[in-house]
Simulated scan of single mutants.
Amino acid sequence: MKLKQLEGLLGNLDQFANPKIELEQYPTGAHIASRMLYTAENSFGDVSDKVVADFGCGCGTLGIAAALLGADHVIGFDVDTDSLEIAYSNAEDLELDVNFVQCDIGNLECRGKIIDTVVMNPPFGTRNKGADMEFLSVALKVASRAVYSLHKTTTRDHVRKTALQDCNARSAEVLCELRYDVPKLYKFHRKKEVDIAVDLWRFVPAKAAGNGGLCR
């Protein structure tokens, strides 16, 4: 599938009707989501025929992108049941077989079938300090191949240090810097839209393939 086709399909997905600020819910736009997954597949082969987990999947954009790019199996995890209903509907509209699981990422128990790749747009930690690093820590324990994640560019040094020292990543690489378009969603937002610089990271877990598991 070509990049423009992928972006077009993702652009038609439904997003949050009533986003919840306590969960830092912001939609992952089609532009950034398509480039994230397209890079994971075409530069590293981390999507096609792989088991892909979407952490904090929200309305399912990243997981659905993985399914469109030929993932063998996709599982989306989110604590919010309202978001999961939208995600399920989005996948159903595209006739994609994606599993969605309601759970708190911090409480995942992993066993059994291997998860190859984790993709995520985690909370940036502006409301719940450290939420982004909690997501990353769990992702690196689960993935057997790679973790792709978006983080504010202003936190680059902190993310790299935490990944390598505290989360036991083998490597942490910024693939590119992107512009995250944040629409006016909440009452405290004064501008119609704000662009935030974010890094697209690729993390490689310290342990070899076989360390990951199916999360329940």
Score class of each variant (00 low, 15 high):
residue 118 V to W: 15
residue 114 I to E: 15
residue 98 V to F: 07
residue 36 M to D: 02
residue 23 L to T: 01
residue 206 A to P: 01
residue 89 S to R: 15
residue 25 Q to N: 07
residue 123 P to S: 00
residue 170 R to Q: 13
residue 143 A to R: 09
residue 73 H to A: 08
residue 214 L to H: 14
residue 22 E to P: 01
residue 190 R to M: 10
residue 100 F to S: 11
residue 54 D to S: 11
residue 136 L to T: 00
residue 80 D to E: 13
residue 180 Y to V: 02
residue 140 L to W: 07
residue 110 C to E: 11
residue 193 E to F: 06
residue 90 N to R: 02
residue 92 E to Q: 14
residue 99 N to P: 01
residue 170 R to F: 14
residue 21 I to T: 08
residue 194 V to R: 08
residue 47 V to W: 03
residue 115 I to C: 12
residue 184 K to N: 10
residue 208 A to H: 13
residue 164 L to Y: 04
residue 84 L to C: 07
residue 79 V to G: 02
residue 212 G to R: 07
residue 179 R to V: 09
residue 161 K to F: 03
residue 18 N to P: 01
residue 167 C to K: 10
residue 112 G to T: 02
residue 75 I to Q: 10
residue 110 C to P: 02
residue 154 T to P: 02
residue 136 L to Q: 01
residue 177 E to S: 12
residue 47 V to G: 14
residue 191 K to T: 13
residue 171 S to I: 04
residue 88 Y to Q: 15
residue 107 N to K: 14
residue 99 N to F: 04
residue 54 D to V: 10
residue 34 S to I: 07
residue 169 A to D: 04
residue 71 A to T: 12
residue 74 V to G: 07
residue 33 A to H: 03
residue 154 T to L: 06
residue 195 D to I: 03
residue 38 Y to M: 05
residue 65 A to T: 13
residue 32 I to R: 04
residue 111 R to F: 10
residue 128 N to C: 00
residue 58 G to R: 04
residue 213 G to Q: 09
residue 206 A to H: 09
residue 154 T to C: 04
residue 170 R to V: 01
residue 206 A to L: 12
residue 144 S to Y: 10
residue 86 I to T: 12
residue 210 G to R: 05
residue 143 A to G: 06
residue 175 L to G: 09
residue 205 P to M: 10
residue 160 R to N: 08
residue 84 L to G: 08
residue 198 V to D: 05
residue 69 L to W: 10
residue 188 F to K: 15
residue 68 L to Y: 08
residue 196 I to V: 14
residue 18 N to T: 14
residue 150 L to M: 10
residue 58 G to N: 06
residue 43 S to P: 00
residue 141 K to W: 07
residue 199 D to F: 01
residue 71 A to I: 11
residue 123 P to F: 00
residue 216 R to F: 14
residue 207 K to P: 01
residue 62 L to T: 11
residue 94 L to H: 11
residue 34 S to R: 05
residue 170 R to M: 12
residue 79 V to P: 01
residue 186 Y to Q: 08
residue 59 C to E: 04
residue 5 Q to E: 15
residue 105 I to G: 03
residue 135 F to N: 00
residue 181 D to S: 09
residue 198 V to P: 03
residue 209 A to L: 11
residue 18 N to A: 12
residue 63 G to L: 06
residue 27 P to T: 05
residue 106 G to W: 04
residue 155 T to R: 00
residue 182 V to N: 02
residue 31 H to R: 14
residue 130 G to N: 00
residue 175 L to F: 03
